[in-house]
Each structure stands twice: as structure tokens, then as C-alpha cells.
Simulated scan of single mutants.
Amino acid sequence: MGISISNLALRIVSGAFILNTGIGKLNLTPEQAAGLKSSAQRVIPQVGSLEAEKFGHYLSFYEIALGAFVLTPLVPSRLAGLALGAFSAGLVATYLKTPGLTEPDSIRPTPAGTAMAKDFWLAGIAVALIFHRKRPARIG
């Protein structure tokens, strides 16, 4: 089985980043939680039924769990990639559906959208983890 150095690097970078982001959300102010909820609601309308502070706690715990999951060596890289892909799809959708983050008729970020556009790297890491193939063993 084993894990490749390239996959390990991808998992450490993305997992640690997400874990840190989740820890940083443990003590959100009500205003911060409401802002995150508003953004998420553009992609997942059902989020609107949650209280903002409760949503903030759920998001924080989800990010902590996802970061730990991606960092856990016993989790197969492909499975970690699938989990990361689902998360990054939500981030990319939020970026694309939030007014003012992209140039008109484009996916290119505006200055205000640059911070969220960088989350495309998580989608790229997810694809790399999902489709990484080990080289077949050489005989002879």
C-alpha cells in the first residue's frame, strides 16, 4: 500500500490549511458567522434555516474534521481526495455565485474576489489525489 511523497505533500498542505481554518472559526463573532452563512446560503439554500452562530459552529467542526481526515495517513489518498473535492466544490461554487467576486462574464477574479479564487488550488489537489496512479512494478 504506502503513500507517495507527492501525495503526502498535497495532503499535508491542504489538510493543515483546512484544519487551521476550522480552528480559527471556533470563536466567530455573530457578525462573522452571519457573513459566512450568507455566503453559504447562495450555494446551499437550506443553510438559511440555521441560526448564524450554529452554522458557524457546524462549519468550524466540519473543517476541523475534514482537515484531520485529509491528514490521517490511514485514509486512502483517493478517499481523502474525494472528501477534499466535495469541500472545494462548495468553495468554488460560492466564489462563482457571489456578486462582485468575478469580472463580468468571466471567472477571473476582481480584486475583491482574489481571496476566494485562490481556493481553486484545493480543487486541483483533490483531482491530483483522486487520479494519482502508482507506476506498475518493473519486472526484470
Rank of each mutant, 00 (worst) to 15 (best):
G113I: 03
S39C: 09
Q46V: 09
K97W: 12
I125L: 09
S88Y: 02
A83V: 01
A65I: 03
L8N: 10
L101R: 08
S38C: 10
A33Q: 05
I130M: 03
G124S: 02
K25L: 06
Y58N: 11
F61Q: 15
I3P: 05
G22A: 07
L79N: 13
A68E: 06
G140K: 10
G113E: 05
L96F: 07
Q46M: 14
L101H: 04
F131Y: 13
V13R: 08
V127G: 01
P76Q: 06
K37H: 08
A86F: 12
I18N: 05
G2V: 12
M1R: 14
I130D: 00
L74C: 14
Y95M: 04
E51H: 11
D119Q: 01
P73N: 05
E51F: 11
E103V: 15
R133P: 06
P76W: 07
G56R: 04
I64D: 06
H132A: 15
A89G: 13
K37N: 03
I5V: 15
Y95G: 05
L19E: 07
E63Q: 09
G56A: 10
P45R: 13
L26E: 11
M1N: 15
S49L: 11
G56Y: 01
E103C: 10
R78S: 12
S39A: 13
L82Y: 09
G140A: 10
G90R: 00
I44Y: 13
T102V: 11
T114C: 11
E31A: 14
G113K: 07
V70S: 00
A40Q: 07
G124L: 05
K25G: 01
K134H: 15
F61Y: 12
I139V: 13
V43I: 13
R135F: 11
L8Q: 13
S49T: 14
L8D: 09
I18F: 02
V13H: 06
V127P: 03
M1T: 15
G90K: 01
L96K: 13
N7R: 12
F120Q: 01
Y95H: 03
L10T: 05
P104W: 08
V70N: 00
A128C: 12
T72L: 13
A40K: 01
A93R: 04
K134Y: 14
